[in-house]
Design a protein around this nucleic acid. Structure first.
Lengths: 341, 341
DNA sequence: CCAAATTTGATGTACGTAAATCAAAATTTG
DNA sequence: CAAATTTTGATTTACGTACATCAAATTTGG
């Protein structure tokens, strides 16, 4: 049987009340006594029964998710996963509130974070916009003892407790190798479609992609990045234009959202030529394109896993418990038409 | 606030004792009363507080994991993950016991399952050997209300509650496409190294592999399967022999364990020629081979995820709760040298 | 050494559920 | 309709922890 508070009291030769004072860091315990109790805890290997403690406290975990108000499939999916978590909330004692803020707007994000500093929720998850002022706001929260995890997009050099998202440099590198190997040594140009170079994930993906292409596939050269602002219309125009003007394009890497436009352009212009295409994010559109051969591989991050992982980590941090690292590493999914879920 | 048993009692106009009788299916409640209570439960949307219930019951979940005594990296890893779960057991009220049985031995497996039928643990996870008598034994357990999940390897046509493992047909198909695309339309032979065609996962991987090669990469032809019994020595001999005799080999698919031997053979014989190699299971050996270019892609199933998923599902089944499907789908990991964890 | 301050102990209640007991009420049976 | 039986209610204790209160013991300061 697991040791209980009573066992600590017996082992330390003190009363239950004193054990309680130590465990819940209440005042009025002499230093020596406190140490006696702490030693006993260590010796008998006591771990607090979180379930019983929560029951006694009537504790719930008020968490806040800060999400950008972006109108693309991925963010919609992320939103849906957060809502699903909200629906499960009563069962696992979480109370999740979401705040929507304009995308790519550091000031709005900072304002929200500062407001939450007053409110002091049990934990905060945010899709970070990578700016110094955001980092500062996050660091301040961390300093004040509020657990913070970044979601999907990380925050350079910040002291956030955890990042629930994929390694975007690795994603870019992987895309490069897939494209390079699929092209089998062919020579030509590669078009890259991004959302915006102001977003950290996109920058990182490009960085990884460019590095591997340069080093390992020198016969391929990367054309200037097309910034489609994750907008299908704009993506369509940019890609269609590039395909018509540049005859040497043999491959396309789409590292952002707005793939609907990309697919439309590919279908319109590329029926005659064979293009190898790697894109990010599995949506209804990219899935169909993968199946019909318009896209050759899709890299994906599972928004559901990211949200659940963020919640688990926030909870663990709020309770001062350890996280299972292997469980919380968000993996990069690679989908070919054969292993679609 | 979440409704409690008291709220049910008030809503149904009965006493707490009666609510308890209904909730815990104790006898001595008239049909009409039982229905009144059940309606009230539905109307106010009561969900039992599992934490409080477990506390009151002093409940723990005695689970049993039946693992084959196979001496390969993957099974060692699986074992380690189970041990890690055992170490965490006190915290989540599980008591995990493992039983080792000889590999590929349906009789031993059936004997173990029948023994557990008497013992009645809260749940059983087993690496299934795909045989009719095993299916029958599992179905009997399920009929007797014991939650059963298959781990890593599934059981054809059985009524097990869940399968915590990857889709091996999809894995084989994915391997075929990676190999085919990486070879870029080259002509030649493909060697396939398996453990044993008596194991279901291996049969399925081969099935998926062969189907995609035949349909989409007709310029490749699959050589007769080499059965290495997941043994490094044997794998070495078989592969070395094949490489020396068959000049037209351009690719290798290793769908089982024993990759240490494969890698040795590849390094010895294939320095001069360029082979494209896809293998299963990420281990220290395959990881090194992927990095140095001996292997081009590794397909992997995360044993840690499988074990944790099995436990979550068993717990949910034991409590009669729903599982989050997306969370429990074990994904096929594809590793290139760029996205290694 | 005494009074004041601090530390410790003893005890009770609560959280939401399980499980048991005994009495009271309702229903069925002959 | 009474007796036997079944169903229901009322009440209590327990699980492991949190938290509050009050009394008793110990330490500290002057």
């Amino acid at each position: 049987m697991r040791p209980t508070v009573h066992d600590i009291a017996a082992a330390a030769g003190v009363s239950l009340a004193t054990v309680d004072r130590v465990l819940n860091q209440r005042p009025g315990v002499r230093h020596v006594t406190r140490e006696k109790v702490e030693n006993a805890i260590r010796e008998i290997g006591y771990v607090r029964d979180v379930a019983a403690a929560n029951l006694a406290k009537g504790r719930t975990y008020p968490f806040v998710f800060i999400l950008p108000a972006s109108d693309n499939s991925f963010m919609h999916g992320l939103n849906a996963e957060v809502r699903a978590a909200v629906a499960r909330a009563p069962v696992d004692r979480t109370e999740i509130r979401t705040i929507e803020i304009p995308a790519f707007d550091p000031d709005a994000l900072v304002a929200a974070l500062e407001m939450l500093g007053e409110e002091r929720p049990s934990g905060i998850a945010l899709v970070a916009t990578d700016a110094p002022e955001v980092r500062e706001a996050v660091d301040k929260l961390v300093e004040n003892g509020i657990p913070v995890v970044t979601l999907v997009s990380d925050l350079t050099g910040s002291r956030r407790h955890h990042y629930a998202g994929v390694d975007n440099i690795a994603a870019g590198r992987t895309a490069a190798r897939l494209l390079g190997r699929f092209l089998g040594g062919a020579e030509g140009d590669v078009a890259v479609l991004a959302g915006s170079m102001l977003v950290r994930d996109h920058r990182e993906r490009l960085e990884g992609f460019a590095a591997v292409i340069a080093r390992e596939f020198p016969s391929l050269s990367i054309l200037p990045v097309l910034e489609g602002r994750d907008d299908p219309e704009m993506a369509y125009m940019l890609v269609a234009d590039a395909l018509s003007k540049k005859g040497g394009i043999v491959g396309v890497y789409s590292l952002g959202a707005g793939n609907r436009g990309l697919i439309k352009a590919l279908k319109a212009r590329a029926a005659d030529r064979s293009l190898t295409v790697v894109a990010h994010e599995l949506t209804a559109h990219t899935r169909a394109a993968l199946i019909d051969g318009t896209i050759d591989a899709i890299l994906n991050q599972d928004a559901g896993h990211e949200v659940r992982s963020a919640i688990r980590v926030l909870k663990a941090k709020a309770d001062g418990l350890a996280v299972i690292d292997g469980q919380e590493r968000i993996r990069l999914d690679i989908f070919l038409k054969d292993n679609l879920p």
